[in-house]
Write a protein that binds this DNA or RNA. Sequence first.
DNA 1: CACATGATCGCCT
DNA 2: GGCGATCATGTGG
Length: 200
Amino acid sequence: MRRPDPRLDLELRERGLIEPGREFFRRSTVRVARDLVGAWLARRWRGRWYGARIVETEAYLGPTDRAAHSWNGRRTPRVEPMYADGGHLYVFLVYGMYHCANVVTRREGVAEAVLLRAAEGPAGSPRLLSGPGKLCAGLGITVRDSGLDLVGDGSIRIFVPRRRSRVRIGVSPRIGIDYAGDAKAWPLRFFDIQSAAVSR
DNA sequence: CACATGATCGCCT
DNA sequence: GGCGATCATGTGG
């Protein structure tokens, strides 16, 4: 059983963060998306752990959601991780050069997920992780990580505040889905209104 | 500030 | 063959 770098472990504990169980991710996708704002993403890279505070997410709702890769029940090898049990990772390549990381929600067979759009990285580089492609680039997340389990002892994990967070959360339609019909207007984007790292 | 465009390639039609 | 859950850069007002 690997443990996080003691420094990260201490930092997360000091911030009052704990690792949620599988049930956290099996809840409604909108609730998970909201609760992931203010949560931390921990990434093991070459034997060291790095943490980033998530500040912007989007919910993708499955067969009825034209913007979702699982729209209309689409089930291809690329999308397959979206059908996994809650708490898995779904990563895809966009525009031939950027990766997007999603946290899978609900139960096995229900293809919904939360896109991680932005995080707060190291102090001094406030915009380093401010966008889904930049977040993945900054944390070294690629399609090779698609399908990983975030629950347990893997190389990518999620930590959430132990107590109800006092973060003020803004809501808006999702970004970059003009083709999605009525789903284009659905209020499924959530962000920390205090954060300078939210994407434009 | 607001657009407009190019890069680049896996996936789906 | 077309296009995208993006981003950086360039143009013009």
